[in-house]
Design a protein around this nucleic acid. Structure first.
Lengths: 250, 250
DNA sequence: CGTCCTATTGAAATTCTTCAACACTCGTGG
DNA sequence: CCACGAGTGTTGAAGAATTTCAATAGGACG
C-alpha cells in the first residue's frame, strides 16, 4: 500500500552514515525519503536497541519522548479498559515507523511481541526533519493511511466475523505481513506466528480457549499444520482466504 | 485532536471566494490552511451538493474521482463481507474531509446517514494543491491520525465490550461529535441520534434487537430519556461515561 | 524433579442472535 | 376520512456461539 519510493539521490555509500548502509528502513522505511545529509543529521541522534519479547516499549498515556524505526521483529499496540480487558489494536513490522507524530501522549501501550530491534531518535529530531522535508511527512502520512486501512479492515473482523473466521483472518494477516512478497491468494506458505495464544486472543477479541479450539478444528480440517505451537504451514492459501469470510464446516 | 489552525492571512473577505465566506470548512476544515489565492483556485472546481439520507455517495472498490468537504450532516463509512454482513468502520461529521487521498480506489462504501451537504472537487485539484502546499498535507495527515485513533478506540469497543457497554460507548461517541464544545465527562446533554437502529447495530457489531433491548434497559435505569426514537437526553454524562466500561446493573 | 509458563480439552454457564409477533408512524390512494 | 402498506422499532422465547471454570499436558529451566 505504501508506494515504492526510490532514494532521492543515488549516492555512493561513503556519503551515507555507516549505521544506515545496511539498514532496511533506509530503503523501505521512512529514511528512504531522506537525503544523505539528512541521514547524517538523523544518525547523530539515533540509538539502536534490542527489546526482548513481552517487554514494554511505551505506556498508554505516557509522554512520547522518542520515535523509532522497527528494524526487526513484531510490535504490539494495545489498549486497555479500566478493569483490565485488553485489545491489540495494531501490529507493526519492520520497517515501520513507530510512534504517533504531533501527539504529546501515547494513545496505546507498545510492547514487543518477538525480539525487536529498534533505531530510535528523539521527538525533536523528527520535528526538525519534517519541517524541512515535506516528503518525510508524506511518507509518514502514507503509513498512517495504511494503518487506518488495516484498522478498519480489522473492525470488520471484530464486529462481524465468527471465531473461526477471525482465526483464519489472523493467519491470513500474518502471512501477508511476514511474507509480503509471496502471493496470499493461492499456493502454500509457511511461517512462525509471532504471537503467543493470549496475544492472538487479544488481537481477535476472543479468549485463548476459543482460539485454541479453532486452531484444532482448522488442523483437523487440513487447512493448517502446526508444529511447536508457533510454526504454521498452510498448504492452500486459497482455502484459508475463503475461510476468512466463511464458517468452517465439520 | 486536530489542532486549531488560524488562517494564514487575516484577509478581507473580498479577497476570498463568495462561496467560501460563510463556510465552516473554511475555518475548521482543510480549507483553513489555504491561502486566499489557493481558495480561489479550489473554488473554481468545487460543486456543492445535497445528499439525502441512505443515499450512496461512493462504492467500495470504485475509483475515486472526487473528494469533498462535509459541510453538514453525518456520513457512514462501511465495509461488507462477501455474504453481505456489514460493519460501519467510521462516521464523519462536518467539517471533515471525505475520501482517501493518494489511493486509486475507495476502501469502503460511503453513504449519507442524515441529510448531507458536500463541497466536492476533483482528484486533480487536491493533488495540485497538496504538491504546492505542505500545510495542506499536514492538515490531511492530522485528520488521518484522528481517524486512526478513533478506529483503534472502536476496535477496543468491538473486541472487548459487552452489548450494554457498546451502546453506552456509542452514545458517548455521538455526544462528543455532535456537541464537541460541551463537556462529555459530566453535566447533561441532549441531541438527535444521526443513525437509525440498523446503522447503530452495524456500527456496534450487534443486531438491531440487541441494540433496542439495551436502549430499553438504559431508559429503565434512568441513564437516558428517548423521544421519537431519535432524540436522546442524557441527564448525567458521568454516569454514561462510566457505563462505557462497566456492565449495566438490573 | 519440581515449578512456571503455555497450550489444550471438556462441561456448564452466559450472552447474544435468530425467529416470530406486534406496535407505531407516515404517506398514499380508494 | 379511513384503510393499507412500507419502513422502523420493540418485545418474547428458543437456539447457538462464545465464555467461564476446571482439569490436564508438555516444554523450558533451575
Amino acid at each position: 500500500m505504501i508506494e515504492q519510493l526510490k532514494p532521492r539521490l543515488d549516492v555512493h555509500n561513503s556519503e551515507m552514515p555507516v549505521l544506515c548502509q545496511a539498514c532496511e528502513a533506509r530503503h523501505r522505511g521512512i529514511c528512504g525519503v531522506l537525503t544523505p545529509s539528512q541521514l547524517v543529521t538523523l544518525s547523530k541522534h539515533t540509538t539502536k536497541q534490542v527489546v526482548s519479547p513481552e517487554q514494554q516499549i511505551a505506556f498508554e498515556g505516557e509522554t512520547t519522548k522518542r520515535f523509532a524505526n522497527i528494524l526487526h521483529g513484531v510490535v504490539k499496540l494495545s489498549k486497555l479498559t479500566a478493569d483490565g480487558r485488553q485489545q491489540i489494536v495494531g501490529l507493526q513490522f519492520a520497517p515501520d515507523f513507530m510512534g504517533r507524530p504531533f501527539s504529546k501522549e501515547n494513545d496505546y501501550a507498545v510492547e514487543a511481541a518477538t525480539e525487536v530491534r529498534l533505531c530510535s531518535f528523539p521527538r525533536s529530531t523528527l520535528e526538525q526533519l519534517t519541517t524541512e522535508s515535506p516528503e518525510l511527512e508524506h511518507r509518514l502520512h502514507q503509513q498512517t493511511l495504511k494503518e487506518l486501512g488495516e484498522a478498519r479492515e480489522w473492525m470488520l473482523t471484530l464486529g462481524r466475523k465468527s471465531a473461526s473466521e477471525r482465526v483464519a483472518s489472523f493467519l491470513h494477516f500474518i502471512a501477508m505481513h511476514i511474507n509480503p512478497e509471496v502471493s496470499h491468494t493461492h499456493g502454500s506458505q509457511q511461517f512462525e506466528i509471532p504471537l503467543k495464544r493470549s496475544d492472538i486472543a487479544d488481537f481477535l477479541g476472543l479468549t485463548i480457549e476459543t482460539v485454541s479450539r479453532q486452531f484444532t478444528r482448522m488442523r483437523q480440517a487440513g487447512v493448517i499444520k502446526i508444529s511447536n505451537n508457533r510454526t504454521i504451514e498452510i498448504p492452500d492459501m486459497a482455502k484459508l482466504a475463503a475461510l476468512t469470510e466463511t464458517n468452517i464446516q465439520d
